[in-house]
Structures are given as structure tokens and as C-alpha cells.
Nucleic acid binder design. Structure first.
Ligand SMILES: Nc1ncnc2c1ncn2[C@@H]1O[C@H](COP(=O)(O)OP(=O)(O)OP(=O)(O)O)[C@@H](O)[C@H]1O
Length: 625
DNA sequence: TGACCATTATCGGGT
DNA sequence: ATAATGGTCA
């Protein structure tokens, strides 16, 4: 009830504008605000408030977060409001979030849940396979070859991005055929057709299909749509500026048209995923799409110093197409933004490491620091130097868990067990470890192949009454996978560790489908642990939504940041500016911009020019070291 | 079939 | 400069 102790607690610690946004539970709401103004905080409190007020049960709230990590954080913060035990949550955040907040997650994980529930409508088996980008690429390459094209002339990557782009715009091959121009797109269309047919045969969906299929489901079946409208009393979407067309449609389809209880949160200045179809006009058009909407603007930044806020604003103000937005802070002015020009990338990394070690002496922890860069390739030199200087670090975003070979190998068994139609996984599993069954033997068939199929069928029968970890143990015993990867070398040891990590993860799940889905959909940032006492190394993109006391932006050079490929198009340069704004505003107290005057690119030494972003910041906010 | 070697792409970001 | 892919040969 309003004024009840719980509601009071939920509203405590919010400023006036934030409180208003939290209290405006009903009807369409847009929270449009700059960095560090407490948007995510608002969303969390809003969810808590709705539950505390008894306006909806936790399973009646659909909340889309940008990462799985954010979903878990949301769950963690409302544990006490739900009257549940914090220990339970901490023991297994995954299971806890699934159980108590089944509809809090990323677009992709929410879609999987809907599709699993409604699979029959779409003629899919319940345990359909999720293709990740690697699987998609392999399939695409195979089709290109099958159709008689040379993968060297028709780049599988380029075709992938055409197909993905089409799906993000909700274009089926038929729809896409209307836009085709030129030879390459003609071929891409042909591949798209075949690719889609192949996925159906395999009972598989790729990442983009997860969204597109859900949209189709909801468009095609009004009764399914109505069911979810009843289920979801409240819908909330965080980071709405980074939704693509398919996600935008999906949001509208999932919102009850009568109540229109939809709250979207975001900042058009922080739209950094345009390259994968995100369109920040979605957030700017919210008023047009929902004329009854109320708009809340939060203008006070609680995160950063005045100098950081001012500097970041100056970079982003050069963008022509943007909303007008105020952002101020009561925080101290803080030290100027430090700029350091190193002679080369090693010297740059040494400066960063030395600076961190120096500041560490002034009472900082290692996890107060982050080094952010434009391209993942930059992490290598930083790692090398950090290692030699004894600076503990955690690298985020390099290799996703699922992309490790051992994980993919074992998942292929599990996928095939769950979905016998998935011959893609079958073909991988049957010869991992090598059993002398290559493509030729497979085609001919015969005893060896039948034996494997029979063995798998046996495990499949038993699997029905087993937990995910038990099934995985069976697979490991059957394949003797561990002894296959453990060759006694340190690398072999690492591979065994990967297997064990997968086993541990499996033990956190109750259903095989959920376990596999989790492994396929988690990103590397999801494993980022803010408590681990180490310096964080990650891409600027991956840093979205996070905050650190001290931030270094490495490689502030023309051609690297802003990136070479963004120099020509204004829209792309705008996105680089927004990325700069995002990256700068991750910092609470101190911000460094560093660069190398010489850098090795593609094996050749190149002279560099300092990034225009440094020039665009008022010189008296900067301290050139 | 699978190991080995040459050639080629990669280094733009990621669910 | 390195990783991945593809072709060749045992
Ligand atoms: N009313 C408030 N009083 C004190 N601190 C606040 C308040 N609101 C937000 N904060 C703090 O400000 C910081 C930023 O909040 P939050 O991450 O919710 O902002 P955001 O708008 O989502 O940021 P961004 O868009 O940059 O990711 C957090 O540390 C949060 O605890």
C-alpha cells in the first residue's frame, strides 16, 4: 500500500524526478536521461515498487535487460522485497532468477522461453537447437559452396551480415527479394533461402530467428498474443535506444494494448549498436508510437565528477541528429582529464600499469580500475605488460564460454540428444573424439555409424529421467572426452578445466534445455564479477551500464578511435562519438585518455594522430602529461 | 582419415 | 604478426 513501510523503503534513496518515474506505474512511460542519472536504478525500484504494492506478481512483470548479468542484478536487488533469502539467491543466482523472476532477461532469453512454450504453433520441436554465430557461419559457408560459389569470391561473413540484417528488419527471403540489387545481393538471397530451409530441417533457430520467430508467432496467432497480454501486466525495457526493428516490434506486440503498461528506459546519446541494426529513433519516436505516454527526464548525474561530465558532453554535442538533454552534477569538480601520449603501444600500456600501481598506493583496490579500448586486439599488449608488472587483471569479452572448443564439442552431444533432427551437431559429435568416421564414412553409413546412433539412443532414453549434470556425465563417460583432451600438457590441463567448468555449470540447472540455452546465450560480460579484485580490461562496448572509479581509454588515435571504418559516414562517426560518451561516463573520479604515437597495424609500424575527441574537449578540462 | 603445411584473412563491436 | 582455413600426402 502507498505509504507502507516496504513502499517507503523502495522509494528511499531516490530523488524527486526518479520517485515520480517510479510511481508512474500505469500507462506508457518513457524515461529518457543521460549517463549516470539513475535510469537503471529507477527501473529496479519500479519493479520492486510494483511488487511491493501488490500491483502484480513477479511472474507478471516482463523486464528486458541488456545483459543476463543485469537480469540477475535486478533479481538480487529485490530479494528482500520478496521476503526471500539472500543466501538462496547468492548460492545460485541463475536458478533463483529463473524461478522467481521468470520473465526478466534479455530479448533473446525471453524469446527462447516464449518459443519453448509455444513451439507447437510454429511446428518446432520443444528442444529446438539454437545456432550461435559460429554455427551460422559454418552453415552459410557450406551452402555457398554447395551452390557452386567460391567462398573466396562470395564472403560467408558478408552473406551472414546480409541475412542477419534482413532478419533484424523482419524480412523473410521473400520480403528481402524485393530489395535485392546487384549480383552479390542476388547470391546472398539465394543463400538466405537455402539457409533458412536448412535451419528448418535441423529444427534450429539462429540468434536473429529467436526474435523474428517470436514476432511472427505473436503476429500470426492473436490468441497467443492475448495470452501474453494477460500474463504481462507490466512491461519494461532497459537500454531501449539500442533496440533494432525486430525488438521494437516485439516490444509493441508484448504490450497489452488496453493498459499500455510499458516503460522504456534509455539514452539516445548511448546508442552504440547501430552496426547490428539498433535504431535510436525507436526511443525518440516513443511519443509518436504511444501518444498517451508520460516522459520523465532525469538530469542529475550521481556518478561522475563535473570535469568528466563536461568533457563527455563536448564530444557528443557535435552530433547533429540528437535530442537536447541537460546533465549536471552536484559532485566535486575533480581533477582534470589526463591525456598521455606514449611513443608506442608498449609504452602506453606501461604508463597505464604504472599509473594504476601508483594510485593503488592511495587506498584504491584493483577493481576500482578499468582499461577500455575500441578493439579487442588492443588487449594483448596490455595483458603482456600487466603480467610483467604484476598487475592482476580480468579480461572480459574476448572469448565467450560457448566458443571454447571443449564446450562446443560437448554441447553438440547434448544438442543431438535433445534434438535428434540436429544433424549439424550429430556430425560434430560422431567424430569428436575421432572415431575414424569422416564425411565419407558418414555418407556411406554402415556399422560404425549405426553403433554410434544406437549408443546415443540409449543415452537419450535414460536422459528423460536424469538431471543435466547426470546427462553430461554420461556423455563424458561414453566418449572418454576428458582423456581425449588431457594430453598431459598445460594446455590439456586448461581444456580439462573447461570441461569441469561446464560440469559445474550444468549442476546449477534443472532442465537440459535451460542449461543449453544458458550456455549458448551467455556473453562474456555476464561473467564479469565486480567483486573480483582485479583490474578490468574490456571493450568500450562491453562497458555499457558499468561504472569504475578510475577509467583509462586506451588507443585514442585517429583510425583506431574513431575507427578507420567510421571516418567517412557521418552516421558512423556519430556512433563513435556516442561510444566515446559512453566510455568516458563510466568513470566516477578519474579519467585518462591515452594514445600511442606509433602502432603496429597488420604487422607494419604506423605513425598515428591523436584522436579528434581529445581536441574537441575544452583544453582547460585537460591535463596533458 | 587425419596430420601437416601453405595460404589467406584478420584487427570493428556481440546476442 | 597470428589464427584459421584449405589442400596435399602418408
Ligand atoms: N538518487 C540517487 N542518489 C544517490 N545515488 C544515485 C541516485 N540515483 C542513482 N545513483 C547512483 O548513480 C550511479 C548511476 O546509476 P545508474 O547506473 O542507475 O544510472 P544510469 O542512468 O543507468 O547510467 P548509465 O546510463 O550511464 O549506465 C549508481 O552508482 C547509482 O547508485
Amino acid at each position: 500500500m502507498p505509504g507502507s513501510p516496504v513502499s517507503e523503503a523502495v522509494l528511499g534513496g531516490l530523488n524527486l524526478a526518479q520517485k515520480e518515474a517510479v510511481l508512474a506505474t500505469d500507462g506508457p512511460v518513457l524515461i529518457l536521461a543521460g549517463a549516470g542519472s539513475g535510469k537503471t536504478k529507477c527501473l529496479t525500484h519500479r519493479l520492486a515498487y510494483i511488487v511491493a504494492e501488490g500491483k502484480a506478481e513477479t511472474n507478471e512483470i516482463l523486464a528486458i535487460t541488456f545483459t543476463n548479468k543485469a537480469a540477475q542484478e535486478l533479481a538480487g536487488r529485490i530479494v528482500n522485497i520478496l521476503g526471500l533469502s539472500l543466501q538462496d539467491f547468492q548460492r545460485n543466482p541463475n536458478l533463483f532468477t529463473r524461478r522467481y523472476l521468470p520473465w526478466v532477461g534479455t530479448f533473446h532469453s525471453i524469446c527462447v522461453r516464449i518459443l519453448r512454450a509455444e513451439h507447437e504453433q510454429l511446428g518446432l520441436p520443444k528442444s529446438f537447437t539454437i545456432f550461435d554465430s559460429d554455427d551460422s557461419l559454418t552453415l552459410t559457408r557450406g551452402i555457398i559452396r554447395n551452390l557452386g560459389y567460391d567462398p573466396k569470391q562470395i564472403s560467408p561473413n558478408a552473406v551472414r551480415s546480409v541475412i542477419s540484417g534482413a532478419k533484424n528488419e523482419l524480412l523473410s527471403p521473400e520480403d528481402y527479394s524485393k530489395y535485392v540489387q546487384g549480383y552479390f545481393q542476388q547470391v546472398a538471397l539465394e543463400v538466405y533461402r537455402k539457409y533458412q530451409r536448412r535451419l528448418v530441417e535441423l529444427s534450429a533457430l539462429d540468434f536473429d530467428d529467436l526474435i523474428m520467430a517470436t514476432v511472427k508467432l505473436l503476429e500470426q496467432f492473436p490468441e497467443v498474443r492475448a495470452k501474453y497480454h494477460q500474463q504481462f501486466k507490466y512491461v519494461m525495457v532497459d537500454e531501449y535506444q539500442d533496440t533494432n526493428h525486430a525488438q521494437y516490434r516485439l516490444t509493441a506486440l508484448l504490450t497489452n494494448p488496453k493498459s499500455q503498461n510499458l516503460c522504456v528506459v534509455g539514452d539516445d546519446y548511448q546508442s552504440i549498436y547501430g552496426w547490428r541494426g539498433a535504431n535510436f529513433q525507436n526511443i525518440l519516436n516513443f511519443n509518436r508510437d504511444f501518444p498517451a505516454s508520460k516522459v520523465y527526464k532525469l538530469e542529475q548525474n550521481y556518478r561522475s565528477t563535473k570535469n568528466i561530465i563536461l568533457g563527455a558532453a563536448q564530444v557528443v554535442e557535435r552530433i547533429k541528429r540528437r535530442s537536447e538533454k541537460k546533465l549536471w552534477t552536484d559532485n566535486e569538480e575533480g581533477p582534470p582529464i589526463s591525456v598521455y601520449e606514449a611513443s608506442n603501444a608498449y609504452a602506453e600500456a606501461e604508463f597505464v600499469a604504472t599509473e594504476i600501481r601508483g594510485l593503488k598506493g592511495y587506498g584504491h583496490n584493483w577493481n576500482d580500475f578499468a582499461v577500455l579500448y575500441r578493439t579487442n586486439a588492443q588487449s594483448r599488449i596490455l595483458e603482456e605488460i600487466f603480467l610483467s608488472q604484476g598487475v592482476p587483471y580480468r579480461l572480459v569479452g574476448a572469448l565467450r564460454f560457448y566458443e571454447r572448443k571443449e564446450v562446443k564439442d560437448l554441447l553438440s552431444y547434448l544438442r543431438y540428444l535433445a534434438n535428434p533432427g540436429d544433424t549439424h551437431s550429430f556430425e560434430r559429435a560422431i567424430n569428436t573424439p575421432p572415431r575414424g568416421i569422416g564425411p565419407k564414412t558418414l555418407e556411406k553409413g554402415g556399422e560404425k555409424v549405426d553403433k554410434f546412433k544406437d549408443d546415443m539412443e540409449q543415452i537419450r532414453t535414460q536422459a528423460a529421467s536424469l538431471t543435466p549434470v547426470e546427462i553430461l556425465e554420461k556423455v563424458l563417460a561414453f566418449s572418454r572426452y576428458k582423456s581425449f583432451v588431457d594430453d598431459g600438457t598445460p594446455e590439456g590441463e586448461g581444456r580439462v578445466e573447461n570441461v569441469e567448468e561446464l560440469v559445474n555449470l550444468a549442476s546449477e540447472f534443472e532442465s537440459l534445455d535451460e542449461f543449453m540455452e544458458h550456455v549458448t546465450l551467455i556473453s562474456d560480460v555476464d561473467n564479469y564479477d565486480a567483486r573480483a579484485d582485479a583490474v578490468t580490461l574490456m571493450s568500450m562496448h562491453a562497458s555499457k551500464g558499468l561504472e569504475f572509479t578510475v577509467v583509462f581509454l586506451a588507443g585514442c588515435e585517429e583510425g583506431l578511435f574513431p575507427h578507420m571504418r567510421a571516418l567517412e559516414e557521418e552516421a558512423e562517426m556519430d556512433e563513435e562519438r556516442r561510444l566515446c560518451y559512453v566510455a568516458m561516463t563510466r568513470a566516477r573520479k578519474r579519467l585518462y585518455l591515452t594514445l600511442a604515437r606509433q602502432r603496429v597495424i597488420h604487422g607494419g609500424l604506423t605513425n598515428t594522430i591523436p584522436s579528434r575527441f581529445i581536441r574537441e574537449i575544452d583544453q582547460n578540462l585537460l591535463d596533458m602529461i
